[in-house]
């Protein structure tokens, strides 16, 4: 089964040899299951000059309870792209790991990386595979952003794709947010986003937007100064993906909080 000429796609290979490892291939009993498992909440992504920034809060909720305070919802998909997940946390983490292996697998088998659009399309078809579970309340919605290494204009190489439960992908211009606090994060970004932001400014803007989301959405966690839990902030540039260190994010988050002490509306 391993030596078949077959495909370069890892999920297509799994569907032949181990279909039970694909989240969409499991039989679910009828009924709603929305309150069964923790939900991951808000993710924002911003296209900057020469890169993209993605940031996520650290809260997972189950109904009115906080299920986890320090969940990490933003991850590198490969060396040049980032993926953030909102929705049912368990399935989201599984899909994200599968997506990481999918991209690495293609790269190793073919000796070349997928194009950014190719990666987005693969993610879309994986989300589409989860449609049955999504209709029973176990939806997962990712946000995908990365550097298009083939872009003609390096300043516009950072691109963002959003998805719905039936797949997608939809390319977004400038910025996007997903999850329960996305409405407030997007409203904040709408007023503050400017084309051609530097990566550093985009990082600050992302943390501000998450603060605004946490301000109005109970399921989104703000910077937790007492426990020293801060948003996960990652960047993807032509040099690769980078996760800001805890020291860097704490400095930014503390300065955002200090700013809000003066002016709560930002």
């Amino acid at each position: 089964m391993f030596t078949n000429a077959g495909t370069s796609s890892f999920t297509a290979f799994l569907s032949k040899v181990a279909p039970e490892m694909l989240p969409g291939r499991r039989a679910l009993p009828p009924g709603m299951a929305a309150d069964l498992a923790p939900h991951a909440t808000t993710i924002v992504a911003i296209a900057a000059a020469g890169g993209v920034v993605m940031a996520g809060d650290r809260r997972a909720t189950m109904g009115n309870l906080i299920a986890q305070r320090d969940i990490e919802k933003v991850h590198p998909a490969d060396a040049y792209s980032l993926v953030g997940i909102a929705g049912t946390a368990g399935i989201g983490i599984e899909l994200m790991r599968l997506f990481q292996v999918e991209l690495e697998h293609y790269e190793k088998i073919e000796g070349a990386m997928l194009s950014l659009d190719g990666k987005a399309n693969r993610l879309a078809s994986m989300i589409r595979g989860n449609l049955g579970a999504a209709m029973q309340g176990l939806a997962v919605i990712p946000l995908f952003a990365g550097i298009d290494l083939a872009a003609s204009d390096p300043a516009r190489a950072g691109r963002i794709f959003s998805f719905d439960v039936t797949g997608g992908p939809y390319e977004e211009t400038g910025y996007d947010a997903i999850g329960s606090g996305s409405l407030f994060a997007k409203s904040a970004l709408k007023k503050r986003f400017r084309t051609g932001l530097s990566v550093d400014n985009a990082v600050r803007l992302a943390v501000e937007a998450l603060y605004d989301a946490a301000d109005d959405d109970t399921a989104t966690g703000g910077p937790d100064l007492t426990r020293r839990i801060y948003p996960v902030v990652m960047t993807a540039t032509a040099e690769g993906t980078h996760r800001l260190t805890d020291a860097e994010t704490s400095a930014i988050a503390e300065s955002v909080v200090a700013g809000r002490m003066e002016n709560p509306g930002g």
Binding site: D70, A77, R243
Partner: peptide, 18 residues
């Protein structure tokens, strides 16, 4: 813990990587 980049690696206090 996963693909592609050094940023995937476990950080102290990181519990969510599965």
């Amino acid at each position: 813990t996963s693909a592609g980049s050094a940023d995937l690696e476990d950080k102290p206090g990181d519990k969510s990587d599965t």
